[in-house]
Amino acid sequence: MSNDIAYPVFRTPDRVGALDAARRIVEYGRRADSRVSARTELRSGAEVRRVAKELPGGWFRAWEEYGEFDGVPSQDLPVLITGVRGCGLPSDPAAYEERLPVECELYGMPVGSVEDAFAAAAGPNVGEINWDGLCWPDASELDLPGESKHAEVTLLLNTRSRELDEPADDHTVLVHVRSLRIDGRQTEEPYAHWLAAQVGLTVIGPGQRW
């Protein structure tokens, strides 16, 4: 089993500029079956309602206490716990005010189908757009083979952390490569630098792992 490591290659407070930079490197590795997913964490009922109007096809799921619904049949669970499309959210604001944060997610969509709408709808909330199913080419001058299993790009919105736990006033593009550590050194880091350079970007910080 192998894992990935994601290196920041672009950062800006300009949401559109960040999305454009992410798309440049996505296109470098895009395949016919590449997909995009996105998620954002909403911490007020007003934001849940607003985002649901802008993303009615988004999948909304709320926070629950550990073990809170043990033994409860699935058909009796609140729809916000099992998950519900934006167009089917409860009309009573209290239904989600009491269960914040609420996560909105779009999963496995065609590349180019949701990115603009999602980035705009996320607004001030932390979130991410992730493209996977990419394929990085060989870097023959570095004697490094291509990569498909861990070829991804992530745009972090209003945060610099893959955990989405540190709000920020800017947006960061990450390029993913295989994590391979030998003698305490990430041997694939030069590959991340090479990939960024192919589209006019550069690694600007240490890699992030889950």
Rank of each mutant, 00 (worst) to 15 (best):
D116Q: 14
L106H: 04
D132F: 07
P13R: 11
D116W: 03
D132H: 12
P101F: 02
A38G: 08
E98M: 07
P137W: 04
R85K: 13
G57C: 00
D70C: 00
S161V: 00
P101S: 06
R181K: 10
G123S: 15
V177N: 04
S37Q: 06
Y28G: 04
G57N: 15
R49H: 05
R162F: 00
H193V: 08
R49S: 14
S179H: 12
R35Y: 08
P78Y: 03
E68H: 09
Y107C: 01
L19S: 09
V48F: 02
L174G: 10
A119D: 02
E103G: 09
I81R: 15
E47V: 11
L100S: 06
R49F: 00
R85T: 07
N158H: 14
G112F: 02
A121G: 05
G205K: 09
I129T: 05
L201F: 06
V48Q: 06
R85E: 13
I81H: 12
A197S: 15
I5W: 08
R39H: 04
I25E: 13
R49L: 02
R31Q: 15
L180K: 12
S140D: 15
V126C: 14
I182P: 00
V114T: 13
S161Y: 09
E166K: 13
L77K: 11
P145W: 02
E166Q: 14
Y96L: 02
V102G: 05
A120H: 11
R23M: 13
G57Y: 14
G133V: 09
E41R: 13
D14C: 00
S44C: 06
C87N: 08
V203H: 07
L155V: 08
A62T: 05
D183P: 01
D138R: 12
Y7T: 07
R30N: 04
R31D: 00
E147I: 02
R85D: 09
E163W: 14
A192Y: 09
V102R: 06
R11C: 03
